[in-house]
Design a protein around this nucleic acid. Structure first.
Lengths: 341, 341
DNA sequence: CTGAAAGCGCTTACAG
DNA sequence: CTGAAAGCGCTTACAG
């Protein structure tokens, strides 16, 4: 493979001149620049990434630390990755993907060995064991997901509290007095998925404040369990006229369940979910929903990370915690409750 | 950050000795080795990846070239990535993930700049424009997906022809005389998804040889279109007693469609699909199916790639094309056809 | 068993 | 406007 030395020799100049001609970091005569460029082109010269990194201490790589959890929802996961990947590409960075189940050690190795200029953490838990490592690393970090302690990192997430409020307020305004909320399984909370109770608590508080009855339940993350559970919940609360879903598996199962119970939305039951629009589209979920916006969150995290990387190490402003405001996309699955006598 | 020089100084030895003591690539007295190790531990020494790469010309990185196509099925995609990721981790490699839509240029940059020791290509097309680049790269390559020309690379895929045959034979043996096959959308073929017609042609041939009528159709890759199409197909072929699915969206939509038509499997209709077991599980698809085995294919590709990388450049055996034999997982959705008079 | 030196391929002050 | 040199942090022949 051609090196900068080969290019310099072919162009009849010094290696430094070849380097400058290619990078444009100091002025070079038009003629020399042309000769160097031609030589580079003809030799098919591409700079060696390792050598450049060693010389500049810039890797132009962003590390993406993901966790492939068994009950993590695959379509959402892939969209986070896509968002990160797309915006890294735009900014000129490559992605180093790590899904080592033992996250802290993997992260430490990556940051210590200087394989990346910055780190994006996915599936962030309330008490995330990767955070202490990230805070003491020299590289900046951006998270998708809100941890208990946000110091030293930039954080991006959906405002799940607002989502919980918005769901309840929407149905309350339509006149519903009794609702059911189906959340992710309880073990998602146990491993630190704070978004589950953030949404649920806000929904419960809002319901209480408005005198709305809200039955909060945890649902399974896979079929057919979740289907059975939905049946049982609808049976147990015959007076409920609205259903809130913070559980993708439940959203996927609901059309069948409603069909089996001969219910239709919104005539018999109003339904509001929380999942990605992409998921809604590919499964044609007919329910109004709050967009989980995984692609957008991935993008935001990378954008901010790149800003930090490129302003480093001085002009780094205060760290941000950006919770995006839920938007309820109306798919017509909510309406005033049916009359019951 | 501590360098090997810092470690050497702290241990009172030369840098070379420190390096050898840590790598074990030449014998070092027990006492010196202990001193060096302790110094490394106390200083929190981790070798600089770029420097090591420059010195050894080994990156310990595998490039993963994916394509995020709009109608690519997300759960399958993520599982390929997981398979690759898991086995890379086991082998001690990191993953450089590229999803640049302009694949050939991205691949060329990655291989030319020596960012990886080997390359895995996902979503391989019949005529894949990344293949010429990969063949002329110095790094070995492994593909998931069967291209028209397999020279110079190792190839892994499901045996889609055998899958098509197996599906038809299975239903023929049960006594079915008229079947419907729903494939992926036609534009998947157009962009090079050869597996669509590989399965379809084999199914058609097998059916013809056995005197079975097979109606082959392309289906949409998303709802609600595919649902409508399934209805139309079942309507158009009232004599069909078996349904073959090579289309994940169709598999996801079918339970609802059958419900709507008051059909049940296998009493009214025998159904066989082809998708990943993981997908079947998370959506509880009640149909017997041939496992697409994305995780396993990803693993196989990496395993072989690592073998090539580590035997390079001499002892590289002939390239392999490994088509894994479809396994029909019986979920009880097939039976002899109902009597029709 | 250990050390001093060269070299991997870049970039970037330092000189002219 | 250009060149010769140093240095990034490793590894690995070459000497002893």
């Amino acid at each position: 493979m051609a090196t900068i030395g080969d290019v310099a020799r072919a162009a009849g100049v010094a290696r430094s001149t070849a380097s400058y001609a290619l990078s444009g970091r100091r002025s070079v005569s038009d003629e020399v620049r042309e000769r160097v460029r031609r030589a580079a082109r003809e030799l098919g010269y591409t700079p060696n990434a390792g050598a450049r990194t060693l010389a500049t201490s810039q890797t132009m790589v962003i590390a993406l630390l993901a966790r492939f959890l068994p009950d993590e929802f695959a379509p959402a996961m892939l969209q986070y990755i896509q968002g990160v990947s797309d915006s890294a590409l735009e900014a000129g960075y490559d992605i180093l993907l790590s899904s080592d189940p033992y996250g802290p050690a993997a992260l430490k190795r990556i940051t210590d060995s200087r394989m990346a200029d910055g780190v994006v953490l996915l599936n962030v838990a309330e008490q995330d064991d990767r955070l202490p490592v990230l805070r003491s690393a020299p590289q900046p970090g951006a998270l998708v997901g809100l941890p208990g302690d946000c110091t030293g990192v930039d954080v991006f997430d959906l405002d799940f509290e607002e989502a919980g409020r918005a769901m309840v307020e929407h149905l309350d305004a339509l006149g519903h007095r009794e609702l059911i909320l189906v959340s992710q399984p309880e073990h998602v909370i146990e491993r630190g998925g704070a978004y589950v109770w953030r949404l649920q608590n806000a929904a419960l508080e809002t319901a209480a404040a408005r005198g709305v009855t809200l039955h909060a339940a945890y649902g399974s993350s896979s079929q057919p369990d979740i289907g059975r559970e939905l049946h049982a919940l609808l049976e147990a609360h015959p007076g409920a006229t609205g259903l809130l879903l913070n559980n993708e598996a439940a959203a996927a199962a609901l059309p069948t369940v409603m069909h089996e119970r001969a219910l239709s939305a919104p005539a018999d039951l109003s339904v509001v979910g929380r999942y990605s629009d992409e998921f809604a589209r590919s499964f044609s979920l007919p329910f109004s929903s709050i967009d989980a916006a995984p692609h957008r969150l991935g993008r935001m995290a990378v954008r901010q990370l790149v800003r930090r990387i490129e302003h480093q190490p001085t002009a780094d402003g205060p760290h941000v915690v950006r919770l995006i405001t839920p938007e309820l996309l109306d798919r017509g699955s909510t309406a005033p409750p049916p009359d019951r006598q």
